[in-house]
Structures are given as structure tokens and as C-alpha cells.
Amino acid sequence: MDLTWMAWTWQTATFFAVIAFLLLGMMLWEYVAPGGGARVGILRFETTRGDRLFISLLMSAYIHLGWLAFSDASLWGATIASLAFAAAVFRWV
């Protein structure tokens, strides 16, 4: 099938591959340690690993957008901030 209309670039392909690997990793993690690590964190409702990953991903999208809107510095700063945020989410939420 012809896929040129999807206009792939290696950058976006990498991006989606990373997401796919994250999902795969979550499945493996679940296989190794079932139950999802459910607990009630600082948001005061029960979250599992999947929830924490989702929060991290969604928030890193917002962090990147915010960085683009309010700062001229390199976007890698936003990426580092997102990673830190994700670590915090996995630790405390």
C-alpha cells in the first residue's frame, strides 16, 4: 500500500516508536509485576502505572507547548523538565 500521503518523517516516526515502546514496556512490566501498582497518591485518587504514564505524557505535551510559547531557549529544556516531571509523577502521584 502506498503510504506517501501520510508524509512520514524520521522524527515523527521516532516519536511514535518511542510511544509504542513505552506501551510495550508497560505490558512487560505488568507481566513481571501484575496489579498495576495501584495506590492513592497526592492527587487523592487511586492511580495505576498506566494512569501515571498517561499523566506524564499529557503533561509533557503541555510543558513542551508552554516552553514554545514562553521561552526562546532550546526545546530540549522542555524535554528535561518533562522527564523530571514524569519521575515526580511516578514517585508521588
Partner: peptide, 29 residues
Amino acid sequence: MTVVNYSVQETFGNNLFFFEGVRWYEEVL
């Protein structure tokens, strides 16, 4: 996925695309 791909490129039709990075996001914001 296609929308994400479009969002980082410039097109002049005929499936010709040029990578633009996050330029469109900056412009939109």
C-alpha cells in the same frame, strides 16, 4: 499520526513535504 506528520512539515501540494520542526507550533501559539 498523519496530522502529527503534517504538523512538522511544509507542503506545496503533490505530496511534496519539507521538514519544518516545531515552527508551526510556535506560529500558532
